[in-house]
């Protein structure tokens, strides 16, 4: 997934859409918005980012999960199998992006890239709802996909690359 920080207005629509799509209980979230401001009045810069699980290629959460509940699924999407999760929270501690939370029902929950929608050929809920169309989702292995195209054209960054997790969330800057 690629997210255009130049277009994001930080409205948090992605957060609400995810909550209603995935029955995320109020008070928790699978995605969230970060605002970074730099400079002194009036020389200022601002970056807005919609963040979520980075679906890392080298995921510490998958590695540290004692039951195998955290795993790689179709297309490299990192998932948690609810009924295999014992809620030990080792994954939460290991994740440098703080992308996971403990669901009130006792298991660890996080972004699934809306795999249930993607399988039907739909976009993840956050991508589909975004009023600024700042998110691009697709197959990074397919050089012709929209997300690959946009990454070819634009400058981008990943978050905390030094953690070595090979994150799959790209921020266009």
């Amino acid at each position: 997934m690629a997210i255009d920080t130049k277009k994001c207005v930080g409205c948090s629509d992605c957060v609400v859409a995810c909550q209603t799509e995935n029955d995320v209980p109020i008070g928790h979230c699978r995605d969230w918005v970060v605002e970074v401001m730099d400079g002194t009045y009036p020389q200022l810069e601002i970056e807005l980012r919609s963040e979520r699980c980075n679906h890392c290629k080298n995921s510490p959460c998958v590695r540290c999960c004692p039951t195998g509940a955290s795993h790689y699924s179709d297309g490299g999407i990192v998932l948690v199998t609810k009924n295999e999760c014992i809620g030990c929270s080792a994954c939460i501690t290991s994740c440098p992006y703080d992308a996971r939370y403990v669901h009130p029902d006792g298991y660890v929950d996080k972004c699934t890239f809306c795999l249930h929608r993607v399988k039907k050929g739909m976009q993840p809920a956050c991508v589909a709802v975004c009023p600024t169309k700042c998110m691009y989702f697709g197959d990074l292995d397919d050089p012709g996909s929209e997300v690959s195209e946009v990454l070819k054209k634009r400058k981008y960054k990943t978050l905390i690359p030094e953690a070595g997790t090979k994150p799959q969330l790209y921020f266009l800057i």
Partner: peptide, 26 residues
Amino acid sequence: MKSRRQFLKISSLSAAGLVFGGGLLE
């Protein structure tokens, strides 16, 4: 930069209150 936990703290009720609130709604 704000971490996710800070974001939650800033933009929502306290974490404990939130869990409680969600439960109540259900």
